Amino acid sequence: GFTKEQQRLGIPKDPRQWTETHVRDWVMWAVNEFSLKGVDFQKFCMNGAALCALGKDCFLELAPDFVGDILWEHLEILQKE
């Protein structure tokens, strides 16, 4: 899971503390893990605080249908851990 990747890359547990690099690493991991298609990494050029502050509607505009939902749900789980 993502926990191993977080440990390997030194990504903080709390997504709100992520840098732009951490956000990119997470999106890249999720794309590979969940076989997601059509993700534009440029749209995720922000730090974790900005990403978490978007709200669901704005977040879902960053990625194609269903893909955004998967990313959003995973981000929500990470914020609760």
Rank of each mutant, 00 (worst) to 15 (best):
K37M: 08
N47A: 07
D69T: 09
W72E: 00
E20M: 10
F41K: 10
D69M: 11
W72F: 10
D25G: 12
D40L: 04
L75Q: 00
L71C: 01
A50M: 13
V39M: 06
L36F: 08
P64F: 01
D14M: 04
T3L: 11
V31M: 11
E20H: 09
T3W: 12
H74V: 04
V31A: 14
N47C: 07
Q17E: 15
F59R: 04
K56T: 01
M28K: 13
W72Q: 02
M46T: 04
F44K: 00
K37G: 11
W18C: 02
K37Q: 14
F2N: 08
F41T: 14
L54C: 03
Q42K: 10
L51T: 00
E20F: 05
L60H: 11
F2A: 06
L51D: 00
G10Y: 05
F66G: 15
F59A: 01
W29H: 04
W18L: 00
R24E: 06
Q17T: 15
L71A: 00
P64S: 07
F2E: 05
G10W: 05
H22C: 02
E20A: 12
T3Y: 07
S35D: 14
P12A: 04
E5P: 03
N47T: 15
R24C: 09
D14Q: 05
G38M: 06
L75M: 08
E61N: 13
L78T: 06
L60K: 15
D69A: 12
A50V: 10
F41I: 14
H74W: 03
L60N: 09
F59T: 00
L9V: 09
H74D: 07
F66K: 15
A63C: 14
F44Q: 00
K80N: 15
M46D: 02
D40G: 03
L78Q: 07
P64W: 00
V39F: 07
L36K: 03
T19Y: 03
L62Y: 08
L51N: 02
D65I: 13
C45E: 14
V31D: 04
G1M: 07
N32K: 15
D65H: 10
W18K: 00
L75V: 02
D57Y: 05
Q7K: 15
T3K: 14
L54T: 05
L62H: 04
F34L: 06
A49T: 11
G38F: 04
G38H: 14
Q42C: 06
V23G: 00
V31I: 11
T21S: 13
L71T: 01
G55A: 14
Q17G: 08
W26F: 07
C45K: 11
K56L: 03
D14A: 04
M46I: 08
V23R: 02
F41N: 12
V23N: 01
V39D: 02
W26S: 00
S35T: 12
A30Q: 08
L75T: 00
C45F: 13
I77R: 13
P12W: 02
L54E: 03
Q6P: 05
L71I: 01
V31L: 05
C58M: 13
T3V: 11
V39G: 02
I11V: 10
K43D: 07
I77A: 14
E76C: 10
A53Y: 03
S35V: 05
R8G: 09
D14H: 08
I77W: 12
V23H: 01
A63Q: 06
F2R: 06
E20D: 09
I77H: 15
L62S: 05
F34M: 05
E5D: 07
L75G: 00
C45N: 15
A63K: 03
D65G: 14
A50K: 15
G48N: 02
L75P: 01
S35C: 10
L51Q: 01
A63F: 14
R16A: 13
D57M: 08
D40R: 06
D25P: 00
L71N: 09
G1A: 10
L78G: 03
M46F: 13
L9S: 09
W29G: 04
N47S: 14
L60G: 10
V67N: 06
Q7H: 12
E33C: 09
F2H: 04
S35G: 14
I70D: 04
M28Y: 08
T21C: 10
Q17K: 13
P64G: 15
E76F: 06
T19H: 08
G10Q: 14
T21N: 15
C58A: 15
I77M: 13
D65Q: 12
L51W: 01
W26N: 01
E61T: 14
E5I: 09
L36Q: 03
A63Y: 06
L54A: 05
H74M: 06
D40Y: 03
G38C: 05
S35L: 05
T19A: 07
E33R: 12
W26P: 01
W29S: 05
E20W: 04
K4W: 07
M28F: 10
F44D: 02
A50C: 09
K13E: 10
P15S: 00
K4Y: 12
L75H: 01
V67E: 15
K4A: 08
G48L: 00
W29E: 03
I11K: 02
G38S: 09
G1R: 07
D57T: 11
G10V: 07
L75N: 02
E76R: 10
C58D: 15
H22W: 01
F66M: 12
L9F: 07
M46G: 03
G55N: 15
K13I: 13
V39L: 08
K13N: 14
A50N: 09
F2C: 05
R16H: 15
E76T: 08
S35W: 03
V39Y: 02
L9A: 08
N32R: 14
I11S: 05
S35P: 03
G1Q: 06
Q6H: 07
D25M: 11
F2Y: 08
Q6W: 09
M28G: 11
A30C: 13
W18D: 00
R8K: 11
P64C: 04
D40S: 08
W26M: 01
S35N: 08
H74A: 09
A63G: 06
Q7I: 15
I70R: 12
H74P: 02
M28I: 14
K56D: 00
H22F: 00
N47R: 07
L62N: 04
L75K: 04
G48T: 02
D14S: 05
F59V: 04
L62M: 10
L51V: 04
H74S: 10
Q6D: 06
G10A: 11
E33K: 14
R8Y: 07
M46C: 05
I77T: 14
Q7N: 13
G55L: 02
F66Y: 13
A63R: 01
W26H: 01
A49G: 09
W18N: 00
F59I: 04
N47G: 08
E5A: 11
Q7C: 06
D40I: 05
G38T: 07
R24Q: 12
E20L: 07
K13H: 12
L36H: 03
L9C: 10
Q42Y: 06
R16W: 09
L60S: 10
T21K: 13
D25V: 11
L60R: 12
E61A: 13
R24T: 10
G10F: 05
C45M: 13
F44W: 08
T21L: 11
R24K: 15
E61V: 04
L75A: 01
T21H: 11
D65F: 07
Q6R: 12
G10I: 07
Q6M: 14
R24S: 08
G10L: 06
F59Y: 01
L36Y: 03
L75F: 12
P64K: 03
F66R: 15
F44E: 02
G68I: 04
M28E: 14
K37A: 12
W72C: 03
A30M: 13
F41Q: 09
G68N: 06
K56W: 02
M46V: 07
A53G: 13
T19M: 05
V27Y: 00
F34P: 01
N32M: 09
E20T: 12
N47H: 08
W72M: 05
V27K: 00
R16D: 08
R8T: 09
R24V: 11
F34R: 06
Q17W: 08
V23E: 00
V67Y: 05
G48Y: 03
F66N: 15
F44M: 06
K43Q: 10
E76W: 09
A50F: 05
E61R: 12
C58T: 14
A30T: 14
V67C: 12
D40A: 06
W29F: 06
E61M: 06
V39W: 04
F34H: 10
A50D: 14
C52T: 12
